[in-house]
Design a protein around this nucleic acid. Structure first.
Length: 553
RNA sequence: GCGCUCAUAGCUCAACGGAUAGAGCACUUGACUACGGAUCAAGAGGUUGCAGGUUCGAAUCCUGCUGAGCGCACCA
């Protein structure tokens, strides 16, 4: 029995109590059934009596009494206690709890999937760093979190398109091109330009590919450096993302919005919605109608379109392509954009509380020798995605960056990253998985296995450690659903750490295989089912984080 | 000045409004002639920044204060 099953059963109990006239309340849509931290509180606990007490006009414990009697009648429920202010503590019979192992093994990779977001078309945009340099540590965080979030959302049934917005138009690209040109000609990088080894490398790559380039006019050179530089830089970013295991379904070009006329059309479309006005020769969008602190310019007095106009066109493009929810992941330095982006949606006639979501993530702070490393492109001390991968590898990097809430700034110690990588909890989790694989290998050596489903006797999974891990395994689908609904993939990582610890304790206390000349027993077989179930969940969880589930370490 | 986010163990971080606030690392002490010890057990470590409020119940929600990061362009 899964927690979801039990929740429904409790809900049904409330229903039947209402029908019998024992409770005068409306049946709640969802009944919370929790795995209590304290073992003495049973396998599962529900606060439903506390929630309904006021509406029922009875003390919580009296409501609990009514429900307890009905819950005791549910098949698989061994015991129901009323505790504290009115909690209902439910204990399952061992066979019912243990049967979950078989359910999981049979579901395999599908276990954990749920339909919380079934059919929802989500466009998830993340990283979107300017193609004027390598991805730095902040961008790496969004790559890890965003890619994992995409996987989590899909596991909840959402139809997700991942997207990288390439700011390949505008003055930053011109500065980038000018920097390349300067480097190729051995000149100083212009004011506000880009510096760094990569500039020199790319410049050289371009002059290698385009012979005689430096003999052409300055203007011609600049054009070549712009197009070729952009091409190479984007390819470089794509390579980094690819190596990082982060996949984007769409690489969306800002320039294409301008070239196709989509930016002008966006202004027209917004004007038709009645939120566009002109003032001082410029064209504005009245975003203040929807919570922005000032109206935003779409077309400047000199006739040029703004970056904001492209943002509007881009949003409309996402919607035109069938997106129901446009989900943006932005860094903390862009939080000021939230209101104006949401206002775009509202001005377009959309629901700004549903069709657009903006998730703001805090920065990554780097520490070296106990001191904060202030990164600046000019000083050339940027920590790039390739640096991090080189130090600790993709698995550890992704895990480290994805295991924390994006609401909190995280601090990474470079000394730790480059040396004592054992401090990374990912190894604790992965090691648990290798131990499960080790059990399977050992079983094969001994020539034994878990047997058929018919031979599986779930009632033999009776120790406290087995009960603990069954409880943890049952939580996986709801952890996933919550992570998807809240857009918080770090919950998956935390869950896996908890599961790994629970497994390590089981491993210490329960033998899965016969030792010496002992016989293989039904208990061994039942435990092999449990180990396989745990391995399945661990592997499924690691996959959601884009982290490998190794058989050996 | 206005706004967004944050403040939890020595450090890095968790905790859909639930019961005694949890892990990892670091520290102390133990555990392998059994499935891989990258493990486990025990100990120590907290006024959840401060003060009020909401309620059966607050780290969580509301208000104020303090402190930190970031943002407030006809820039991109």
């Amino acid at each position: 029995m899964t927690p979801a099953d039990l929740s429904q059963a409790v809900q049904a109990a409330v229903s039947s109590a209402v029908e019998a006239g024992e409770l005068a309340v409306t049946v709640p849509e969802h009944v919370a059934v929790d795995r209590p931290k304290n073992r003495d509180h049973g396998d599962y606990a529900t606060n439903v009596a506390l929630q309904l007490a006021k509406a029922a006009g009875k003390p919580p414990r009296a409501v609990a009494e009514v429900l307890a009697e009905r819950l005791r009648g549910i098949t698989g429920v061994a015991k129901v206690d009323i505790a504290g202010p009115g909690f209902l503590n439910i204990t399952l019979d061992t066979a019912t709890a243990g049967a979950l192992a078989r359910t999981i093994v049979e579901a395999g990779e599908a276990y954990g999937r749920n339909e919380a977001l079934q059919g929802l078309k989500i466009n998830l945009e993340f990283v979107s760093a300017n193609p004027t340099g390598p991805i730095h540590i902040g961008g790496v965080r969004w790559a890890a979190v965003g890619d994992s979030l995409a996987r989590v959302l899909r596991a909840s049934g959402a139809d997700v398109t991942t997207e990288y917005y390439l700011n390949d138009a505008g003055v930053q690209i011109t500065k980038f091109a000018a920097s390349l040109q300067a480097a190729a000609n051995g000149r100083e990088v212009p004011e506000g330009g880009y510096v760094g080894e990569y500039i020199v490398d790319i410049a050289k790559a371009i002059t290698d590919v385009v012979p005689g380039l430096l003999d052409r006019s300055e203007d011609e050179q600049l054009q070549v450096f712009r197009t070729e530089g952009l091409k190479l830089m984007v390819a470089e970013i794509q390579r980094s993302m690819d190596e990082f295991g982060t996949h984007f379904d769409v690489w969306f070009s800002e320039k294409s919005l301008h070239d196709s006329g989509a930016v002008e059309q966006a202004t027209t479309r917004l004007r038709e919605q009645g939120h566009v006005f002109e003032q001082d020769g410029a064209v504005f969008l009245r975003t203040t109608d929807f919570g922005d602190d000032k109206d935003r310019v779409l077309i400047k007095a000199d006739g040029d379109t703004t970056y904001f106009a492209a943002d509007a066109a881009y949003y409309l493009s996402k919607r035109d392509r069938g997106t129901e929810v446009a989900l943006y992941m932005l860094g903390a330095d862009h939080h000021g954009y939230v209101n104006r982006l949401k206002a775009i949606a509202a001005c377009a006639g959309d629901d700004m509380n549903h069709n657009i979501e903006v998730k703001i993530g805090q920065f990554v702070k780097m520490l070296r020798d106990g001191e904060e490393v202030r990164m600046s492109k000019r000083a050339g001390n940027i920590i790039t995605i390739d640096d991090v991968v080189e130090w600790i590898g993709v698995d550890a990097a992704r895990y480290t960056l994805a295991r924390s809430s994006t609401d909190s700034t995280i601090t990474l110690d470079i000394n730790v990253l480059t040396s004592q990588t054992n401090e990374n909890p990912v190894y604790y989790v992965q090691y648990a998985h290798t131990r499960m694989c080790g059990v399977a290998r050992k079983a094969a050596e001994l020539g034994v296995d878990k047997g058929t489903a018919e031979q599986f006797k779930p009632e033999l999974l009776a120790t406290t450690w087995e009960n603990d891990i069954l409880g943890a395994l049952g939580e996986f689908p709801r952890v996933l659903a919550t992570a998807g609904e809240l857009r918080e993939p770090h919950r998956v990582a935390r869950y896996l750490e908890d599961l790994a610890g629970t497994y390590h304790r089981l491993y210490e206390n329960c033998m899965f295989l016969p030792k010496g000349d002992e016989e293989m027993t039904d208990t061994h077989r039942a435990r092999l089912w449990l180990v396989e179930a745990t391995r399945t969940v661990m592997a499924n969880g690691l996959t959601l984080l884009g982290v490998s589930a190794p058989e050996r370490m």
